[in-house]
Amino acid sequence: MSERIYSIDAMRIIAMAFIITIHTDPFRGIGVYGDALNFLIDSSARFAVPFFFVTSGYFFARKTARRDPVRYFAARAASISSIYVFGLLLSAPVFLAGTAVRAGIENRDVVNAVVLKLTEFVSPLALLYYGNSVSEILWFLPALLFSLAIICSLIVFGATRYLVPISLGLHVVGLLGASYTMFVDVPFEVRDALFFGFFYTSLGYALHSSEWRPSSDRSALFLGATVLFGALHVVERYVLGYVLTGETFGHGVYTSSYTIATALVTLSLFLFLLSRPALGARTPLPEWGKYAVGVYVAHPAVLFALETTAEVLAVTGHEIRTTFLWHFLLTPATFFGALLVYIGAHRVGAIEIGGSHLPSVRSIGKYVQRQ
């Protein structure tokens, strides 16, 4: 059995906390300094989603080294799909309720607003491929599923040596369509499997498939590279968002998703974690890592509920969204709220952490009978 990599397990939950900070936008709109701090936090957190793609690709290669890749992919596809369905079932009712509340606040037709939102939910391409029909946050899961499907196909055809070159070429198109739009107009969505997830997942697969392993005596080098590339990442985004446009933090926060340096900082961080596999072993973080996926799928609903509550309070004359306390507490409230929802769903038998995430009415019924 392969040795457990505690450092990667620990980083899962840390990276998930960074993802939530991207979505909660701490301190954004709280003056120029608040926007500057938000830009720094957002830039520092952008490694997190690529990290999960790289991790998935790495362990896909590890798991398929001595087993049938098609059979293992089928199992992974079933797992990812069940997690995605769980996320949809959590988010959809909350988003519909929030839509109804907001329509009422704005004196719009509530029924019409809800029906329109439902129509958006069932858009086939957005639901099954882009993963943004219900919540844009859930896009990662379909992107990961299709990325692994492409990798599995190339394994079957014995063409894995082309993984990185092909995925890199496609990712360049994705970068042109996301962050480097001044060079060319890419007229289609690029935050998906083909132009984003495939590259990072292939990178993880290639890292494990190669015979080279990062040694512990070079961990300081990898850590230094992570810090250096992290700083470069912030500078690159600042140049793209402010230097080239002539804008300042007074105009707002530049929030382009990913750039060239994103890959560099993600790769160097992953190599550092591989070089220090026991890092974090004596802390609770590796065990918390198993909750990362649950926090991910539950936090869109929790965050939306919190934001909708704040909107309702604003209508009643209690504006809290512009306060420092709101910006300080929203991220931990979203994180731990999502964690409680996930653990709660497991304890009532609706899902199984580490197993199927398809809600089971029978399991819930058995739980109720035991009480």
Rank of each mutant, 00 (worst) to 15 (best):
L127K: 10
D185I: 10
E247Q: 02
L329R: 04
P286E: 00
W326I: 08
A17M: 13
L358F: 15
Y180P: 08
G197P: 02
Y129D: 12
G204I: 00
R282L: 10
S123A: 12
A100E: 14
T248N: 07
L313G: 11
P284L: 02
F47P: 08
A97P: 05
I150D: 02
Q371K: 11
W212H: 13
F140W: 10
L329C: 09
F229I: 13
F272L: 12
A143Y: 08
F304E: 12
I137K: 11
A149F: 00
T24I: 10
A225V: 10
L194N: 06
Y291G: 05
S7T: 09
L163R: 10
G158N: 02
R76A: 13
L240C: 10
L340R: 13
F27H: 05
V186M: 13
V293P: 02
S219T: 03
G104A: 07
T181K: 15
R237H: 12
H346E: 07
F249D: 09
L203E: 04
I8E: 08
I80K: 08
T160E: 15
L90A: 08
S91T: 12
G104I: 05
F60G: 02
A10N: 06
F222V: 03
M1K: 13
V134A: 01
A263K: 04
G177L: 01
R213S: 08
L339A: 13
I20T: 15
A298S: 12
I320Y: 03
E307N: 14
